[in-house]
Every structure is written in C-alpha cells, then in structure tokens.
Design a protein around this nucleic acid. Sequence first.
DNA 1: GTAGTCCGATTGTCCGGACATACGCATTGA
DNA 2: TCAATGCGTATGTCCGGACAATCGGACTAC
Lengths: 245, 245
Amino acid sequence: MSLDLRVDRSSPVPLYFQLAQQLEAAIEHGVLTPGSLLGNEIELAARLGLSRPTVRQAIQSLVDKGLLVRRRGVGTQVVHSQVKRPLELSSLYDDLEAAGQRPATRVLVNTVVAASPEVAVALGVPEGSDVHRVERLRLAHGEPMAYLCNFLPPGLLDLNTDQLEATGLYRMMRAAGITLHSARQSIGARAATADEAERLGEPEGAPLLTMQRTTFDDTGRPVEYGTHTYRPSRYSFEFQLLVRS
Amino acid sequence: MSLDLRVDRSSPVPLYFQLAQQLEAAIEHGVLTPGSLLGNEIELAARLGLSRPTVRQAIQSLVDKGLLVRRRGVGTQVVHSQVKRPLELSSLYDDLEAAGQRPATRVLVNTVVAASPEVAVALGVPEGSDVHRVERLRLAHGEPMAYLCNFLPPGLLDLNTDQLEATGLYRMMRAAGITLHSARQSIGARAATADEAERLGEPEGAPLLTMQRTTFDDTGRPVEYGTHTYRPSRYSFEFQLLVRS
DNA sequence: GTAGTCCGATTGTCCGGACATACGCATTGA
DNA sequence: TCAATGCGTATGTCCGGACAATCGGACTAC
C-alpha cells in the first residue's frame, strides 16, 4: 500500500511540519516499514505539489530525530530500530505521569534562604543573597521515590505550595512564560546519610542515585539549580542518544 | 571590532559549514560576546557574497548546537551561558583521554560465549548463539575506575586484545567502518557484590554507579551491548542537555 | 497618563531551478 | 574470474526571490 500524504495549504501549520508529522505517524504505525526507501525527494515533492526544499526540510527534521537516514545516491531509509525518543530535558513529574505512575508530591520546605557559595555560583547570584529553596518528596504508589531540593533566583516565579504539589516545577516555569533552553547535569551515586535514608525509607548507607542540575533559559540565565537523590531500586535514568554527525 | 568573516569558494568544504565554523570560533574566543546581536541575515549574506538560505543554514546549525537563539522580529543572539557540548554518544576512553587522565585498559576476558536470554534480546540474536564477550578494567592513574562487560554480535569486528588495550571499543568500531547511530542507555546505582567490590578495589556493599547500553548502527542493527559499573568516587556522568523546540 | 494602534525590522516559510557529489550496478576489459 | 570503468540516480549544496508572521517601539487617541 502506498502512503497517502496530503497537506492543507490553508492551515497555519507550516507545510514542512505537516509533512513531517504525517511521515512520523506513518513510521510509528508501521505503514513505513523499517529499512524501506522513502522514494526520492523530487518525485515526492511533485506528488504533493510542494517544492523540494520544503520536502527536504520535513525529511531533515526526522533525520535529526533519528527516524530516518539519508544516503547519497541511494535514498532515504526508515531506520529500523527501537528508537523511541532522544534524551530531552525531562521532568521527573512528567516522566512518572507518562509511565502511568500517578506521581504525588509532598512539599517539605518552601522558603527563602541566603545563597550558599555552591548555590550562588550555580545561579549566578551574590553569595548570601536571597534565593528560594524548595524541598520536595516525590512519591509513586505511596512509596517515596526521590528527594528533590531546588533553588531558584528571586522574583522569577510565584512558588505556590499548592501548585508545587499539584504539578511539576518545570510546568510551572513554562506556564510563567520561561522558555527552558538547556541544562547541565551530573549523575552519580553515593551512600545515603542518616537523614537521607530516613526521608526515603532506606537503611543508612544504602546506595543512592544522585543528580545535580542547573537549568538555563534561552537568554542563558540560570533559572533553577537542583540536587536530587533517587532510590535506585525505584528509579533509573533511561534515555536514547543520537550520534551527531 | 567587527567580525571579519570570509569564505573560500574554491574549498570543498561547504560554504555554510565554513561560515558556521567561523561563527562558532568567534563565539568561543569571545569575539562575539554573549547576548550580542548577530546582525540580520540579509545584510550578512550580502556582506559575504552568499545567499540568504546558505547563511540561514549556517546559523541554524549553531542554533541546533545551542549556541545561538533566534527571535523573530528581533534578531539572532549569542546565548550567554556556559554551553560546552551537548550530550553525545561518548566513549569512556575518549572522555578520560580528553580529561588528560591517560586511561589504561586491562582486558580480563576476550572470548566467545553462548548468548544469555538478556544478551540475546539486546543484540537481536537467537538465545544460545555465539557472541563475543569482552570484560575490561579501565584504570586512570593506576587506579581502577570502571569495570566494563561488553557483548558483540559475531563477525562484526576483529576483537584483537592488544588493540582493545591500546584504544577504545568505539574507536575500533568506527575504524572498521561501522557508523554508530544511536544508543539506548540506562543509568542506575546499586550496592557492590563481593566480586565487583574486589575488582574495583571497593568494600563489599559500597555504592556503585551502573550503566547499561545497547548501541545501534545506522541500519538499526545492534552492534554492542554493555553492562558497566563505575566507582562513584572516581566517575560521574556529566552532560549538557538541549531542549528541542 | 494610559491604552490601543500602526509601522519598521527581522526571522519564518516557500518556491523553482541549477550544478556538484557520491553510491550502486551494469558493462567492459584484462 | 575478477578488477576497472562508466552511467544512472539520489542526495548535497547553493542561488535569488517572494510573502507571511511576529516583535518592539513610536505614535496617537482617549
């Protein structure tokens, strides 16, 4: 069966984007089988009544996602593998919700403190200046899963405790008009201290998975610094990487 | 000082790539300061004797790298933050070498075994069929740092022990004409077993950082499955993420 | 004084075409 | 039989232009 592709020129959605979505859906649903050729760009453009640059833009976006591979002189193939999603700046809350875990959050601390040297460097604020401090316990199925400690620069966000318990921090930021751009992460492990052990319901000295992250908006301004600890029996970091060529 | 940009039309290097490299170098060296506007595309194209699409292609590649941000109606700005490099499919060997650690490898096992169910699934081969098994100890400054256990499908690579000790597995793959495309990773933590503890010179029960990875080439074929354990006091995963918009 | 409107600037999208380059295959030659 | 050559095909690069959408500031009207 041949692919039935159409574009709606009256739609405000860009044509290349419409095409990319349809191709992605076709791959997702197995209409375009792995390894199959996509047909050459010229002919595809003619069939859709589009120009070749537009078709190329659509294809390129899927190549960037790792769904397609181009080979000069050969054609464009559907990569046949279990590509699910490349690594993205993910929110634990969204991750859990997507996994159907119905996450719950308990806000332990929501206050303003003086920035420690470490926090001051991460957020680019003077040492000792005011920063928000939020400590949360994230639960899934009633079991503690992670302990999240975040610092935010002042005046960026209205840190309403109820909202923090109802949704994730990243969602609140996006809703406040902050466009997240990049993050620097560090993932490690260490033995739990007595405090950490108690908070997470683990024995003292148990291995913990740790993550530190500083998030930047599109102006390069730090908008969040966090130190998280996870129970390794309940959580691990899973992601897909693409080789940038 | 204004930027002096030039392109060499006689070079086989694509024009957009030449421009992108020069812009990246200018940002790297601080000639283009963070937050500064890049000047509009039309004028830039005219100044260089290039067409606008070519200039846009160069700029876009830097936007994809997270170095620039475009704002419609405003212009293109240099993102002012400590963007170093986005996460890439990295080799521990290369990481260590880049950090000036002079990595050493000791090959403990290099043999052919029957695929266990777990390995068979990961590599997409029949259970019990032949696969290569390589166990290595990675050292830095003479201290054990990680224990690497890898499985490879048969006939893919000549697994010479001397080469394995002199370089990294990924380098050998690339040299063999395999184009790495993507990988699925999982990072977690757990307590060291007696065997693991002895191998890495840690006490039994010490927290270990673990990573499992399946790597695929551009046809989607699995080319490597590995289970690695790291000493968390010596190693952590550090990387930069970009929000794909 | 404040809010709404207009307008210039800049990027976003799209077109149609041209030539270059690399891959795979069939043909040719030793 | 096997290696070198040539050709078709497909993507890679590049051009020059056109119009749309959006942002920010200036201007205007209330």
